[in-house]
């Protein structure tokens, strides 16, 4: 089954290698991974998608936590969440065919972000299936796709649940100053 993990990691050199290396060691193929800044300074947020057995989820999460640079790991599993992917699609297009592509883009709520005499670029965000739908229609309509770049999935749980992640990063009750200071120092 498809697993989606959201991980908060220290923004330091080599952290991505450590995470990737763990999946390699477990012989699990990463389908997509996105990394970027989070709401916290010095802490990046990753969304990792991989294909593995249903039972593997627990072990992956538990193993991720064993990496020193990992702060929080959320296994999204079936939880209500918003998932988005960004795609840039470059399509061959002439004066004659352009408007048909504009129409398609309109239907998919995509935007045209670049235009030349021979090609145009479509930007779209949405769930995976929506991106795939647009690609499919372009192909079925005999438009020549020149390039596709997809960001991979980003996922965020719905609702006011941020607390779960933030709580884990908040200083512990026992040693508030120390943890606070250490967090600042990062």
């Amino acid at each position: 089954m498809l697993h989606t993990f959201v991980a908060y990691v220290e923004d330091k050199p080599g952290v991505l290698t450590r995470v990737a290396s763990l999946f390699r060691r477990l012989n699990i193929n990463i389908i997509s991974v996105t990394v970027g800044c989070s709401e916290r300074d010095g802490i990046s947020r990753m969304t990792l998608v991989c294909e593995a057995s249903a039972e593997a989820g627990h072990r992956i999460r538990a193993s991720l936590y064993k990496l020193d640079n990992i702060i929080e790991v959320d296994d999204i599993a079936g939880a209500p969440a918003v998932t988005r992917e960004l795609a840039l699609i470059k399509v061959a297009a002439t004066k004659q065919t352009r408007s048909a592509i504009f129409e398609l883009a309109e239907v998919f709520r995509a935007r045209i972000v670049d235009l030349t005499a021979e090609s145009l670029m479509i930007e779209m965000t949405g769930v995976e299936s929506k991106v795939e739908g647009l690609v499919q229609v372009l192909e079925d309509s005999d438009f020549q796709i020149l390039e596709i770049s997809r960001s991979g999935k980003m996922t965020m749980r719905r609702g006011h649940h941020t607390s779960r992640v933030l709580k884990a990063m908040r200083p512990t009750a026992e040693e508030p100053e120390e943890a606070e200071a250490a967090a600042e120092a990062e």
Binding site: A62, Y65, K66, E72, A168, T172, E174, E178, A179, A182
Partner: peptide, 10 residues
Amino acid sequence: KPKPYRPHPM
């Protein structure tokens, strides 16, 4: 001195 040791969250 390192941050206080954080046990495995699971």
